[in-house]
Nucleic acid binder design. Structure first.
Lengths: 203, 203
DNA sequence: TTTTATTGATTGAACGTTCAATAAAAACAT
DNA sequence: ATGTTTTTATTGAACGTTCAATCAATAAAA
């Protein structure tokens, strides 16, 4: 059946099938045979396009990482986003984007966190992501707060976002996105209010 | 070597060896042979005392859950803990207790979260724990805040605690316990300050 | 002698990877 | 156009490994 240029198509299919398999039976039982079967191809093709199961998992993690970065970037690029508050809201909204707040992706994140503790390639990916969230937040707090206060606020907001996200992933009824966003917004307001009352630089 | 009453001794040894094995090579590679070897016993003994690997994992999760509950209970039982603020601080301190804030236990938590998405017995354990944290917090906020505000504050604080904890677990340099506790304390203060300025019931 | 504790070789199932074989599109030659 | 060769894509059975579980055998306290 060899049409040319199947590589990107197959890669997309197999990454999607990996996400679905993890959602379905968990990473431990997401075997190559099961993933390949779900994608409607043979098992051998995975080693052919990804070098092996490890390669497939790394590519899958890269994919959801890219989706997250993209969701945030899209909202920050809107031209009505200017003030620190608006930028912080954009970051929050991006982190609670549809592409990140669904059971499939959430289960995959949890699985990757666990595995990344023992695989340096995945660990690097995961840390770049954590750092990016913190740095972005910190940068915008710095426009209204002295350095050390901004860092503290950024650590707090990053933890709040990840915590809301984690508890949403573990909750039986799933995450309530609107309520989660509101809690994160409130936290931002409290930090900005503190700024105004002590050393107002900007709003 | 049959002395009587080995069961509780072996169970403790094997649970400890499980934690160490997960710390060492991750849950996926924490095989029965490896755990038994680390405990200095034979592989067959695990099935004998835990019924199988599943039973060992459930018992291990119960253990760290009990440790967490105990760490919180101990601090709340101190007789200088009376006000809502003091109770909330005790809950925060318990969650950042030494028994919970070390790489071994943190890695195990991450692994169990991931697995519990697909195993109903572990899922139940994990949800009891989440609910307990939220309920405890909510109960004390209710002493100073109207119901819906207290629930909102409790969701926020629970997320903050778990988020700080999660980011600490994933960070290369580990968690900074003092800084984490301070951020959680600050969040409590902000919620209580809001209470005072709107509908002061208590402090 | 009975009971409790423990061993470790064995078993059967499941896994990831490999690779010779196949199939069809594409490229080339006529 | 037509036939031939090359290239790309794909299959799935076979292989070697690893694992959890089992159980007959063993050992020592009761």
């Amino acid at each position: 059946m060899p049409k040319l240029g199947m590589q990107p198509i197959r890669r997309r299919q197999l990454i999607q099938a990996t996400l679905e398999a993890i959602d379905d039976v968990g990473l431990a039982d997401a075997t190559i045979a099961r993933i390949a079967n779900r994608a409607g191809v043979s098992a051998g093709i995975i080693s052919h396009y990804f070098g092996g199961k490890d390669g497939l998992l790394e590519s899958t993690m890269r994919q959801i990482l890219w989706d997250l970065g993209n969701a945030v970037a899209l909202r920050r690029a809107r031209d009505d986003v200017e003030s620190p508050r608006e930028h912080l809201h954009a970051i929050i909204d991006g982190n609670f984007d549809r592409s990140q707040v669904n059971k499939t992706v959430m289960k995959t994140w949890l699985a990757f966190w666990s595995v990344s503790m023992h695989r340096s390639d995945l660990q690097r990916l995961q840390r770049v992501n954590d750092r990016r969230l913190y740095s972005n937040i910190c940068h915008h707090f710095r426009r209204c707060l002295p350095r050390s206060d901004a860092q503290q606020a950024a650590r707090g907001l990053a933890a709040m976002i990840d915590g809301l996200w984690l508890r949403g992933a573990l909750a039986p009824q799933g995450i309530d996105v609107d309520r989660a966003r509101q809690l994160a917004y409130d936290y931002v307001e409290e930090q900005l209010a503190y700024a105004k009352s002590h050393a107002p630089i900007n709003a």
